Amino acid sequence: MPILKDYFSAFAYILFPDNCLACGGVIEQGEKHICTVCRVSFPRTNFHLDKENMLAQKFWGRVKVEHAFAYLFFRKQSNVQSMLHYLKYKNAPEIGQIIGSWYGQELLDNDFYKNFDVIVPVPLHPKKFKSRGYNQSAYFGRGISEVWKIPQLEQGLQKVAHTESQTKKSREERYQNIKTGFTVPNPKEIEGKNVLVVDDVVTTGATLEACISLLLENGAKTVSVAAIAVTQS
């Protein structure tokens, strides 16, 4: 029976092949959502090899960050943008978990997992969560969590309010505006812990800055960040 099941599975794949959610090409049987060609050719940052990388520099002089990582560079009209569009808007949260497991393994191979006790995803506002049905950053964190065997606190941070428009606000005003929208519901969960905050895409870093500051104020020993992608300035 298992052989017959494999036969029908292969036949179904021939009739209805899956497409890569990054490049749109047909993926090989056994691949999941992203083809091997895209996975190999994605523009990696290798930020874990450079503590003074461009993401870390976004926080210099503003908030203390132990480590700052991003797996990929984000460029418009790229395969990375296409993949993230499916992750955020096309009901494909499993992409986040796959990327998290890939990046988690890469960082595991470099022993970075030893620096962290818990993972905390950047939260969505409840209304946005209800509309989307999932938090894409949490799925990214799940992938890392499974590889590292450390817990993820999916409610470690909560977004409690819609923030005001950022238009015409200074960087400091934007930061304060964002910070007031988050809360740490149970500080004891992160007290004295080395926390890794995970996000999908980092642009200015203002949201992460607010999250880092809030976690430190609520007793985290250290805070680091890891994102799927970072925009190049």
Rank of each mutant, 00 (worst) to 15 (best):
M1T: 12
M1F: 11
L4Y: 07
F16C: 04
F16S: 02
F16K: 04
D18Q: 14
D18G: 01
C23M: 10
E31T: 02
K32S: 06
C35I: 00
C35Y: 00
T36A: 12
V40Y: 06
R44Y: 13
N46Y: 15
E52T: 11
N53F: 11
L55W: 05
A56E: 01
A56M: 07
F59C: 00
Y71C: 13
L72W: 10
L72S: 08
F74P: 11
R75E: 15
Q77S: 08
S82A: 15
Y89N: 05
Y89M: 03
K90F: 00
N91G: 01
A92T: 12
P93H: 11
E94H: 13
Q97M: 15
I99E: 10
I99F: 14
G100P: 10
G100A: 08
G100S: 08
N110M: 10
F116T: 03
D117L: 03
V118Y: 01
P121N: 02
P123C: 03
L124Y: 08
N135A: 13
S137Q: 09
A138Q: 14
A138Y: 03
F140H: 13
F140E: 14
R142T: 04
K149Y: 06
I150G: 07
P151A: 05
Q152S: 11
Q158P: 02
T163A: 03
S165E: 01
Q166M: 05
T167A: 10
K169L: 15
N177Y: 00
T180E: 07
V184K: 06
K188F: 09
I190C: 05
V201L: 15
V202P: 10
V202C: 09
V202Q: 07
L208G: 02
C211K: 06
I212R: 01
L216W: 01
A220V: 07
T222W: 06
T231I: 05
S233A: 11
